Amino acid sequence: MPLPQPAVVDGAEMDLSPVDLAPVELTPQDRTSRRGRNAVFSILLSLAVIAAVIHESRGIDLRRVSDMIPLTPGFWLIFAASYVVTPASEWLIFHRLWRIPASGMLALLRKKVYNELLLGYLGEAYFYTWARRRVALSAAPFGAVKDVAILSAITGNLVTLALLVIAVPYLGFDKLGIDGRVLTLSLGVILAISIGAMAFNRRVFTLPRAELWMIGRIHLARIFASTVLSALLWHIVLPDVTLSWWIYLATLRLLVSRLPLVPNKDLLFAGITVVVLGEARDIGALMALMAALILAAHLVLGAVIALNDLADPEKRA
């Protein structure tokens, strides 16, 4: 076995032996100090979630929401599936990458709550720290977490482009209710981001190409599942519109929601439904109901997470 060769640093030789390259073991005092800092951070994060729960709960009109909620169990089953479809798809991705355990689903639900209630991509930072502590990895997980997030955006952009190619010739700019210049600029932004990421994929992405394709396929399946589940929920609330029309409208909503530089997306979607269905529907109330239910789910899950963390912060540090 060849001996390690000395390295030259600023003109001086330095022997890089395997002992020198071995990771430094933390002392018990260092571990205690690190756990203490993590516990303090966990408490602060939990208090921030509780504050967000109290603040956001003021915007829910409980009386209006309760009057519109369907009583059928199927609605709640579909709603639960639509809520967890994104964390479930991410669990499948990271299970294939790292073999994360079933408890990783709870971490991904936390990630969703932190992103929605506190700050975008704070959930990714939390999941990164969770993975470093709980999963046996041969390398730092930051690159994989970054790749999954970037591929999620790119997949959504590609779906948006495909929907534009289909919708614009069929409906036209006028029926879509989008100014042609705004749509062109939005299309340019989407193309620039997607092409830039693909052109510099070796610098942008960390994972091998086979794993990137796997992640992209799961993201695509997640987008499809979310669209179909949304259509099913809308059909249960307003059953006088056929399910096929709701799937079509859910696809259009996905298109509208992902277009940059387009303001008042909910108002724009309500106008599109009038054009497509040929008559006014209670779309505004339906969108308000779904937004309120999703927010309520965030609040309940966030409150449970915060109270659970405050009960034993060191266990989650």
Rank of each mutant, 00 (worst) to 15 (best):
residue 199 A to H: 13
residue 100 I to N: 02
residue 35 R to T: 04
residue 164 L to G: 05
residue 284 G to M: 03
residue 233 L to V: 01
residue 233 L to D: 03
residue 245 W to H: 14
residue 130 W to D: 00
residue 296 A to N: 05
residue 195 I to D: 04
residue 266 D to M: 04
residue 305 I to E: 12
residue 291 A to T: 10
residue 66 S to P: 00
residue 130 W to F: 02
residue 218 I to R: 02
residue 288 A to P: 04
residue 108 L to H: 01
residue 245 W to K: 15
residue 61 D to E: 06
residue 220 L to V: 01
residue 88 A to V: 04
residue 75 F to P: 01
residue 157 N to H: 14
residue 247 I to F: 07
residue 79 F to G: 02
residue 34 R to Q: 10
residue 214 M to P: 03
residue 218 I to V: 12
residue 314 E to I: 09
residue 48 A to G: 07
residue 98 W to F: 15
residue 195 I to A: 12
residue 232 L to S: 10
residue 17 S to T: 14
residue 216 G to Q: 01
residue 47 L to C: 07
residue 280 A to F: 08
residue 127 F to T: 07
residue 315 K to H: 11
residue 123 G to Q: 05
residue 112 K to T: 10
residue 213 W to T: 09
residue 211 E to T: 03
residue 218 I to C: 00
residue 129 T to S: 15
residue 244 S to W: 10
residue 312 D to G: 05
residue 203 R to H: 08
residue 3 L to D: 05
residue 123 G to C: 11
residue 65 V to G: 01
residue 233 L to I: 06
residue 271 G to F: 03
residue 16 L to T: 05
residue 236 I to A: 12
residue 194 S to D: 05
residue 94 F to I: 03
residue 144 A to Y: 01
residue 33 S to D: 14
residue 282 D to L: 07
residue 175 K to S: 06
residue 245 W to C: 09
residue 34 R to P: 03
residue 8 V to M: 06
residue 128 Y to P: 06
residue 153 A to Q: 08
residue 211 E to Y: 03
residue 307 L to S: 09
residue 230 S to C: 12
residue 306 A to C: 02
residue 147 D to R: 00
residue 46 S to P: 08
residue 73 P to I: 10
residue 37 R to Y: 08
residue 222 R to Y: 13
residue 238 L to T: 12
residue 41 F to V: 11
residue 270 A to S: 11
